[in-house]
């Protein structure tokens, strides 16, 4: 459903990403992980149509992306800046639904439904600044859910919350997205998180960022914060991704990637 072809972007003479090629299938959860400054956010912005990449193409359902595509939502790391402080949680969640041409009643109903899914039905009338960081990020996630995008982009979505909240939000994301059959592209610098959340982990190199690894995650589901993380397969995969992120030559060839895209063995 999403395809990046030789995607590259320069800021002046600085090359942020270089020839990124990636295919994401419908319903897949793909984590992109890389060292800081590997152009992760540039990649996400290019897909979201927030910047115009200087090279290559982004194809969404086979069509080149020009401007911000329909059916796409973004959850940013910085919830406090991406939510509107002059609006209640309900109004924040309902705002993008104006694009769907819904009247106020339907918008409110859909927003309430999304807030219920993230466990915030009781806080609908609260303002973002009356909420904890974790609650605010739940509102951001609810906003994306209510919009019902085909593709959900998440830019370090759990980077600004404490460890416990982070685990909760990871599980929440997995749960609601499985429920909606959404395709997710999640960007993170956290190796553990990428393996825990993803169906696939794509590793970017240091700037200029390019794909240096594309590993399927074959862990039994449903995933569990304690149980999954102690599995041998999890530990091995985490080590492998970790090496790739640090630029240490991996023990087995991951560049060949014959089964990275559309692999049949869905284990979750």
């Amino acid at each position: 459903m999403l395809e990046l072809v030789d995607l590259g972007h320069n800021y002046g003479s600085y090359r942020a990403i270089d020839r990124v090629n990636l295919k994401v299938a419908q319903g897949e959860v793909v984590c992109i992980v890389g060292p800081s400054g590997c152009g992760k956010s540039t990649l996400l912005r290019s897909i979201a149509g927030l910047i115009k990449p200087t090279g290559g193409t982004v194809l969404l359902d086979g069509k080149p992306v020009d401007g911000s595509p329909e059916n796409l939502a973004v959850v940013f790391q910085d919830y406090s800046r991406s939510l509107y402080p002059w609006m209640s949680a309900l109004a924040n969640v309902g705002l993008p639904l104006r694009r769907r041409g819904l009247d106020k009643k339907k918008r409110d109903a859909a927003a309430m439904n999304a807030l219920e899914q993230v466990g915030l039905a009781g806080a609908a009338a609260k303002f973002p600044w009356e909420m904890s960081g974790g609650m605010q990020q739940r509102v951001s996630i609810a906003r994306a859910l209510a919009y019902q995008p085909k593709l959900l982009l998440m830019d370090e979505p759990f980077g600004s919350v404490d460890a416990q909240t982070r685990e909760e939000l990871e599980d929440l994301t997995l749960r609601v997205c499985a429920h909606h059959g959404m395709t997710i592209l999640l960007i993170t610098h956290d190796v553990d998180e990428s393996v825990y959340v993803g169906d696939r982990v794509v590793v970017l190199s240091k700037a200029p960022g390019t794909v240096v690894g594309d590993l399927p995650v074959q862990l039994p589901g449903p995933r569990d914060q304690i149980h999954t993380r102690e599995l041998d397969a999890f530990v091995r995969l985490r080590a492998e991704v970790g090496r790739l992120v640090r630029g240490i030559t991996p023990q087995r060839n991951t560049h060949g990637n014959t089964h990275g895209y559309g692999y049949g063995v869905e284990t979750r």
Partner: peptide
């Protein structure tokens, strides 16, 4: 950007 990303 948030609003733009929703296609506004």
């Amino acid at each position: 950007e948030t609003l733009r990303s929703f296609g506004f």
